[in-house]
Write a protein that binds this DNA or RNA. Sequence first.
DNA 1: ATGGTAGCACGGCTA
Length: 269
Amino acid sequence: MKIASFNINGIKARAGALTRWLDHAAPDLVVMQEIKSTDETFPRALLEDRGYNLETHGQKGFNGVAIASKLPLEDVCRGLPGDPDDKQARWIEATVTGPNHALRICGLYLPNGNPVELQADGSPKPGGKYAYKLDWMARMQARVQELLTLEQPLVVLGDFNIIPQPEDAARPEAWVDDALFRLPSRRAFRQMLHLGLTDAFRARCADTGCYTFWDYQAGAWQRNDGIRIDHILLNAYGADLLQDCRIDSDERAGEKPSDHVPIWADLAL
DNA sequence: ATGGTAGCACGGCTA
């Protein structure tokens, strides 16, 4: 079963690129981020006409996540628990049932966190974007810990806005103070891995120069000036099912591309 | 130091 994540950066602008990729990559399930659409205005036919069940968790103008799946989507949950005041649409969960296993899926769009605003003591400025990122990551960790107690295959995938290691950026030195790479961000990500999650891509590939995002500006794609920030994390039950994991970098060279490309894992569900 | 690009939606924010 091919499970993918794709930050599409606007569903209306990406109708062409998304459907081209769907038609040749043929994922069984894809979580999408930055749909930048409300549930009401999402062009559902793009996916439903191709045989996908669709669940959206949208928001006007920004953010927004969705899951499309050939198998039925069960027990759908929208929104990351832990803060009733958080109105940003960045988290969606569902379960799909294969022949041998039921898989819990968490699709996420983790806050970018820039600009980094700090107080005199170096702690994140309360109410700022960086504080929101770290708070959100703490809530994500709590939710993942809950799901781990189910003792079933779990996949947590999406745009994490985290560069895990220097080899995950073409120019790591340019990112040292950025919210995507500064140590507190990477520490929070690593803490999640320490719960027992596997980075599916790194489990399959040790190559450097593999990225999922290239800025639209300054010819970043042409220079392969990218970063690896879209990830697929598996708990131990999920990692035991992992057959393959790849990044569809070619999509970045297509017509009117997103600034992210799809990443996918093949699980023996 | 700035500006470089893109999306949503039509002004300015977000990335």
